[in-house]
Design a protein around this nucleic acid. Structure first.
Lengths: 338, 338
DNA sequence: TTGAAAGCGCTAACAT
DNA sequence: ATGTTAGCGCTTTCAA
């Protein structure tokens, strides 16, 4: 067409205009057919559908999103996609979101707390809402970020009702597991602690503090450790001489790392040492001995995270935190103290 | 403004127009500032930046994508997000994509081969390219789909150079692992086979057929199994009476399931039975005994998948399949036949 | 250096 | 029932 300005080159192969032209109808009619609006004459509709198939057309969801003001997409910010725990939560979240017709855009913050806000905003600029999985940023930054990216749900961080939240009650969890060991007669127990910056580690510490206050004859010692296999594997040398009869690991991954080391060292579990984990990752039940741990049905929690986000998107939610109390699963790695 | 039509309600809080108005400049100038175009007077640029901060503005990536014709986003279609193998590949893929400034939109096909094409197209309609992880659809459907969603990379399926592809050479892999067992003196070996519809299972079967042809005195029996923990756990009853001295599992998950069962049954590994897996998932090295398996550095493969997709997006690629030969990792579950 | 306006590919309000 | 057209929020060409 004359008089038109030069346009950029990156453009769609087949657009709604092409279909309209080929079918001899207006774009509006094509749009109606594509969206199943019933007021279209069946004959015309069929003609349009034929052309669509013939030309292999499918609408640009980007254009659709811009026009509709919604993208049917939500973002998930994960602090570290390496961590199997988030895989499970993500899996449940994605499954539930898909059921409601939403797609999920994932972004990994690579454990860089300082970059989280920026990534979260970018995510939000492409989607209808975002889920923050266990954000590492300071509480101050979190509370500042939330209104900027609402609707938002936060997993495993409190939000003071500024956003929906889903929490795992680690404090109660560690209490349950420690009580289990105490009931088995263990008096000296090691806690292989997680990253110091981690809220969930902090909560576990609080739970153990409670216990120390109530059980003066039980000695719970803190072994700085970490969150990885390797950390658990290496932690042994830090407490092998303490004479503890039981160890609680920050999480299952750490517990399995420890288990691997113990097997190598000829320390038999649970005879010489009882070991407990946290999270109940799928492999926990299949290690040998199978791992005593706290279960939290992570993928179920993921589904719940989605539901809370959904509520943020639609209702005016009450924002009462949804808290999951982990349950003790006694398996093969813990037994009565010799 | 008078005469304007009523518009829908779902609209952005702060747009480029708001910034332009508040800063007393045109939208073009705001756009230039946001994109760091240097030809803007520093004084004006500062004013714009101040307003941006003040109003908490960030550009709609949807609008940007539509205008630019590019979204800096790619889709990944996973057959089953439940499978840890895909988590690892996804992790590597996402990491590499992020490094190049791309975001990743994930979609799970929930093992429904019939829905894959539809989901892949939807993914492509929102993104610049898509990666198909081990698609379950027929080859015919795959070849039909590829041109529709190009640029595309396919992981673990051949494409006849219609698209870039990255493959794990399972046939060679299973050969290596079986030879390892044969060298250890095992003459009767069970193969716990995977889903019959799976290409990767089919390839393993071919590898074993090769072996049967070359090693007439070795008996490799096929035990229909599956891909899950549970499948491995349950498979034992199907071959406990066959007198095999070694078992090769379809993958590590199955192997770990079997290991769990064997521990319960009092069958000691590797003394009574050697067991080998496939994939080298993270937990393989931490089971006890640690699992002999084939390793394929899955997250490294994920990065490679990204690179191939990147090439599809930019170059005119040669599409020679990138094939990874898994390597044998001998650990604790295999030993010389008693 | 800056602004006006066209255009990206859709949807929906309005008119017919 | 169908078409016309404004508008979603940006980018970029062209003119000033």
């Amino acid at each position: 067409m004359a008089g038109k300005r030069a346009r950029r080159t990156l453009t769609r192969e087949t657009t709604i205009s092409d279909i309209a032209a080929a079918a001899g109808v207006s774009k509006a009619t094509v749009s109606r057919v594509m969206n199943g609006v019933s007021t279209v004459n069946e004959e015309i509709a069929k003609r349009v559908r034929d052309v669509v198939v013939e030309l292999g057309y499918s609408p640009s969801q980007t254009a659709r999103s811009l026009s509709l003001g919604v993208s049917q997409t939500v973002g998930v910010l994960v602090p570290d996609l390496e961590n199997p725990m988030f895989h499970q939560v993500l899996n449940g979240f994605n499954r539930a979101a898909a059921r409601d017709g939403y797609r999920v855009l994932v972004a990994d913050a690579f454990e860089d707390a300082d970059r989280e806000a920026e990534v979260a905003i970018d995510l939000r600029d492409r989607t209808d809402a975002v889920a923050l999985f266990a954000p590492r940023m300071t509480r101050e930054n979190l509370l500042e970020l939330i209104p900027r990216i609402s609707p938002v749900v936060v997993f495993n961080r409190t939000t003071g009702k500024n956003a929906g939240s889903v929490l795992i009650d680690y404090r109660e969890g560690i209490t349950l597991i420690a009580r289990h060991l105490i009931n088995l007669g263990h008096k000296k127990i090691a806690y292989l602690s997680g990253p110091t910056s981690s809220r969930s580690n902090w909560e576990r510490q609080k739970g153990l503090d409670d216990l120390r206050a109530h059980e003066p004859d039980v000695d719970i010692i803190d072994v700085p450790c970490g969150h990885s296999f390797q950390d658990g594997y290496e932690a042994w040398s830090a407490f092998s001489h303490t004479g503890v009869s039981a160890a609680i690991a920050f999480n299952d991954v750490v517990a399995l790392g420890l288990l691997g080391r113990l097997a190598e060292e000829g320390v038999s579990v649970p005879e010489d040492l009882s070991v407990a984990g946290f999270d109940d990752i799928p492999f926990a039940s299949y290690s040998s001995p199978s791992l005593t741990t706290m279960t939290a049905r992570l993928s179920g929690i993921g589904e719940r995270v989605w539901q809370v986000l959904r509520a943020e998107m639609t209702d005016s939610p009450d924002r009462e935190p949804v808290v999951f109390s982990p349950e003790l699963v006694v398996r093969g790695t813990t037994k009565v103290k010799a």
